[in-house]
Design a binder for these strands. Structure first.
Lengths: 155, 155
DNA sequence: TCAGTTATTTGGATTAAATCTAAATAAAAT
DNA sequence: ATTTTATTTAGATTTAATCCAAATAACTGA
């Protein structure tokens, strides 16, 4: 039984609109999707219950809050079996925003956010110290040229 | 005149709470921050006007919508001066969610989301076809182990 | 220090939206 | 065709957003 089958174009339209602005009132969504606002409620509750919509978050301009540096880290492990342990350690470092298990050379691929170069230095130091990490490669983000939500298509 | 100076701990607390759940009513935020709900409104409007808070978006489980593959792409350009042109071309490809100018070997670092391996294949083909792109390296995401918002600290 | 000025916060009044529910409609099953 | 089940709808009620004038607090310059 595939969850995707339970999702129709009305759901996709609702998700798509709310993904552009999660604060749009359901009454307004309702008008655009040509259903009642009650239906929007029912559909959203369904999507939340299904775990399709996990939460709503703010899209923040971090540089305006003094977080001027973000970077991707390619992390090499001493042994790939250490993955879970290292992830647990990385969770302790608040500057680590994302971490992925990916194909390719890196054992872990992560994203961090820092205030400035000094901050970056200390974060990198802390990450290097993590047991099981061999070495890291740093890709510092100089410019974010594209950042947008998925555009869904009809089923 | 630094924008960061205009942001105090009340702002940070509000952003932090709404970043966890952007749909939390301002009345509830107000209680937690020990100010009136009017103040939460005023502060949020200020933050929006300043461009600190750009929008609110949904946190979606894409695999439950049939988008099972995400991948990072390291893109090598024939000449780095082609950056802007290539970015414009990448904007035409809806599967490209993010693109960055980064330090390191890659000229462009991008993230894409696809339904399945076939879809990935066609997207990669389309990207390879873009004028100015020399070659690409693909890091397919097999697991997302950490995905969380920034945790802000007091000033 | 103090009066004048400006900015911020507050609480209440109004408007708007979320939420709930029962009835209506539609879809599916036998 | 009829019953069962699920979905949608349109009020009714509760709750929150928004607006605004008054109160408070924070600055300013002499």
């Amino acid at each position: 039984m595939d969850k995707i089958l339970d999702i129709d174009n009305v759901d996709l339209k609702i998700i798509s609109l709310l993904n552009q602005d999660a604060k749009t009132p359901y009454t307004e969504i309702a008008k655009k999707v040509f259903v009642s606002s009650g239906t929007v409620h029912v559909r959203m509750r369904k999507l939340e219950d299904m775990g399709v919509v996990k939460s709503a978050t703010l899209n923040i301009d971090f540089s305006k809050l003094g977080y001027d540096i973000s970077a991707f880290l390619g992390i090499y492990l001493e042994k790939s079996s250490l993955y879970d342990n290292v992830i647990e350690m990385l969770k302790q470092i608040p500057e680590v925003i994302n971490a992925y298990y990916t194909t390719g050379n890196y054992s872990i691929f992560a994203k961090i956010i820092c205030k400035d170069t000094n901050h970056l230095r200390t974060v990198l130091d802390n990450i290097q110290k993590v047991d099981g990490i061999d070495r890291t490669e740093t890709l510092i983000v100089l410019e974010e040229s594209i950042n947008r939500p998925i555009q869904f298509f009809d089923k």
